[in-house]
Nucleic acid binder design. Structure first.
Lengths: 197, 197
DNA sequence: GTAGAAAAGTACAACGACTCTACTTAGCGA
DNA sequence: TCGCTAAGTAGAGTCGTTGTACTTTTCTAC
């Protein structure tokens, strides 16, 4: 797939990064996040601790390796949506489309468990999404020709970005995403008792 | 006002806590959050660093001193609402009622500026609210007799708790809170161009 | 009042995340 | 072949935070 690395240097750099990420993930899954120090990871990957921080901004970033460019995809989904489609529908479709890939990991279950059972990782994961509130709301505001800090735009951006967080861990994520977008589209309705969970 | 401290010990304890919080706030406002170490604060308050952590769970908690018991108030607003009032209306009223007190600080402007210009503090402030998602959603679910992890209940709890975050820094917070609750009640509507900001 | 429990505070050492500086090494381009 | 640059290393240092063992203060019960 994506192998734009031409030079040997870039290849080696990527290899080092990968070695660190792999070592980190394995150790985290084995012992738990708090029971693994940066030094442990550096030793396992056979690099110095300084090198770890050359590749990753902090310990939490080691867990969420391929953070990718969610931001640009998000903006594109709004800007390049089919004419006539509402922004909320475009975002709903985008979330439904790009999401299965994330759960396709080999050790998805253990990984989810690791994140959910480590408070600092839960917090980091939530921030990964809400970090894009500003750029998403700016894109939405542009579509309507209003100020970037328009309250309705900031609000819907934030609410939409909460949806992945809320849907995580649900048995039927597709249905959950749909229900959450319905709340934003039509307003909240009290739950019905019978269908339960 | 609230002076339930009877014993001298409790009074002294509260005094040292206050001394630490005061010293911390002053230093933070003077130099900025990152330019002040725990040792600086401890020295200014004439206590040891260990004492600082006896009173506050971490450096960020020094900024948000009177965190109070927002949680119990929130639950009470749902549980003890007037009969016939919807949960969303009860929460809207609760937010509108209990909020002016927070902005009544003497150095409110500088304080807001401090928080907004320090990423770690922004993150902490957001988490202060969303931390109560679980208990609020449980209370809401109880009102309807559904499971605690009912999606609609978790979602509305989370969205409501985002409202204070979204309304912070707005010129007319009351109006902002109202508009945000309207989104949750009736669904999102695209912004109109003319009224602008 | 005084003894002793209980809590607040201190000094000090330690750990882990992270940064900085100066140095070495390896790939790249001429 | 000769630098230039970027990757990596070693090692010391800062800072937040915790744990341990000790002193001081206050409360309580005799």
């Amino acid at each position: 797939m994506t192998v734009p690395s031409v030079s040997r240097r870039d290849r080696k750099k990527a290899a080092t990064r990968q070695a660190i990420a792999d070592a980190a993930l394995q150790l985290f899954l084995e012992r738990g996040y708090d029971q693994v120090s940066i030094r442990d990871i550096a030793d396992a990957a056979d690099v110095s601790t300084a090198t770890v921080f050359k590749h990753f901004s902090g310990k939490e970033a080691l867990v969420f390796d391929q953070d990718e460019d969610r931001e640009s995809q998000l903006i594109a989904a709004v800007r390049q949506r089919p004419s006539g489609q509402s922004i909320l529908d475009a975002l709903r479709q985008h979330v439904l489309d790009t999401w299965p890939a994330i759960g396709a990991h080999p050790q998805a279950a253990e990984f989810t468990n690791l994140v959910n059972s480590t408070p600092v990782l839960r917090a980091y994961a939530e921030r990964m999404w809400t970090r894009y509130t500003d750029s998403l709301s700016a894109a939405i505001a542009d579509e309507f020709g209003v100020d970037h800090d328009n309250l309705a735009c900031v609000a819907i951006a934030r609410f939409v970005l909460e949806i992945p967080v809320l849907a995580r861990g649900r048995q039927d994520r597709q249905a959950a995403v749909g229900a959450l977008f319905d709340i934003l589209t039509h307003g909240w309705e009290p739950p019905s008792k019978s269908p339960g969970r």
